[in-house]
């Protein structure tokens, strides 16, 4: 159990991903964001609601990090990617695949894993 203070809606969002109920925040004009958001940075709308996160994303770009910060020291080398889920894109760790085999456009599932170094939660993508 963590004793550090939680980061409000960010941790709620991770809980939801963990439970298979991932969501994103959408404004009336259909712009998608990740929480917490009080206003849409694109159009200024303050009428935001939750929408279910599409159940798969596509890798938009990726990197294999060999020189890590101390918080990821034992994780290195690891792959960090941005995956496009349609209305939103999300940054996460790609696992369950050899780093050499990660490619642009790969379809991935999203889940919550732990950092090997600190045990803290992290967004994880797994190629299908």
């Amino acid at each position: 159990m963590t004793e550090t203070p939680l980061n409000g809606e960010y941790d709620d969002w991770l809980d939801a991903i963990e439970d298979g109920d991932g969501y994103y925040v959408e404004c009336e004009a259909g712009h998608g964001w990740l929480p917490p958001r009080s206003v849409c940075p694109d159009c200024g709308s303050r009428t935001l609601h939750d929408e279910p996160l599409p159940d798969s994303g596509e890798i938009a770009t990726h990197t294999t990090i060999t020189v890590a910060t101390p918080q990821f020291e034992d994780d290195a080398p690891y792959v960090t990617a941005i995956a496009d889920f349609g209305p939103v894109s999300i940054t996460g760790l790609v696992r369950g695949v050899d780093p050499e085999d990660v490619s642009m456009g790969d379809v991935v599932d999203i889940e919550v894993g732990e950092r090997e170094t600190t045990g803290e939660r992290a967004v994880v993508f797994r190629p299908r």
Partner: peptide, 21 residues
């Protein structure tokens, strides 16, 4: 911090993401 650093992003990593894109 929430959405990038916690996903392992470093600054070289961020520019690597941009370079590959």
């Amino acid at each position: 911090d929430l959405y990038e650093i916690r996903a392992g992003m470093t600054f070289p990593g961020a520019y690597a993401l941009m370079a590959r894109a």
